[in-house]
Design a binder for these strands. Sequence first.
DNA 1: TCATTAAAGGGACTGCGGTTCCGTTAAGGT
DNA 2: ACCTTAACGGAACCGCAGTCCCTTTAATGA
Lengths: 203, 203
Amino acid sequence: MAVGGTRPGGRTARVRTAVLNAAGDALVEHGFDRLDLADVARRAEVGKTTVYRRWGTVTGLVADLLADMAEQSLPRTDNGSLIEDLRANARLVQRTLVDQRQGALFRAVIVAATCDSRAAEALHHFYAVRIAEWTPCVEQAIQRAELPPGTDPAEVIRAVSAPLYYRLLLSGDPIDDATAERAAQAAAAAARAGVYTTAGDSR
Amino acid sequence: MAVGGTRPGGRTARVRTAVLNAAGDALVEHGFDRLDLADVARRAEVGKTTVYRRWGTVTGLVADLLADMAEQSLPRTDNGSLIEDLRANARLVQRTLVDQRQGALFRAVIVAATCDSRAAEALHHFYAVRIAEWTPCVEQAIQRAELPPGTDPAEVIRAVSAPLYYRLLLSGDPIDDATAERAAQAAAAAARAGVYTTAGDSR
DNA sequence: TCATTAAAGGGACTGCGGTTCCGTTAAGGT
DNA sequence: ACCTTAACGGAACCGCAGTCCCTTTAATGA
């Protein structure tokens, strides 16, 4: 007999992906604040009760959606030099944010994080992982003596993304190729100048 | 007789400030998604109907709140050198975002902008004005030959804020003095390296 | 001071997001 | 193949955010 234990079998998994996809669609169409769980259930061809039981709230659902997105992260490519690596990273982020669907999802997920602590935790984890994936390229640059020793790798990677997100969320300016290029160049210039060394400030 | 025309007299203005203050309090306490207009009305000691009639939606109210915030912007100080000016700017933004009330308000306003086009417009205008206030310090730096000619002033100022907002919204890392200092130094280093020149890239 | 009329107030009403209850389906162990 | 039970589904139900309607207040001009 089947005593205790969770049941991650076929149906449950199928429902989860269906609901997560539907939630993504609904978010892209209506945005975070107009998200109706009953509508998600309808799109997923799933009982409304199921959605409420398993996810409960909009932020809970979005948090799970984020966890799902985190699983399918593409590995970074090695491009030989710091600036090439940072450029590749900037382009990747740019493409993601500009993409109709992905951009809307990111906006929704960020919004959810400001409202709900679980979503916030998921988001912070997501970015911690993403950043960690790219830190090796900075470490390599330090070994190549492209950057001063003691440079904080994570800070360099974050510096590449920051201007792009600034445009996405605050200024509304387009996130074009030139923006990505500038973001990569700026991070590289600041890093070379020793701004991100943990020890101290070297002008 | 009083024919036509709006009536911006005492009571109306009094109601507006009362509601805006109450909305701010409620936002700080509950956050954007838990904002209830009836609750705002209660706090403002104003009829629920009035709030719905004049602002209609949560995003509408937040948009007006932002417009109100835009009016009371403090003028920038002149600190003699580029790095000192950027440092002052970074500190100002840092203080604002760290402040319990202001930080929550900014988060709410940014969230509203992702949901509602009017709020988005208000937000973009707000930052355009804020940025414009600080561009003179970059222009002065160009004249002093601290920066290469052709440097885009707005881009430099945005570069200072971007890492701070990144922490506020995405990573959740603390926005401390060191962060502000690094933001100012990084923007200055990138600008000196010619990253923000419109002409082209001077590595 | 008085007439006029924006604008605010109060309270009943309603549509819908979210919950509850209970019957049905299928995963998975034996 | 069969039994057990986690998980899903349908539908009635409920409370409250948002609307409507009508009354009251006070800003403004003559």
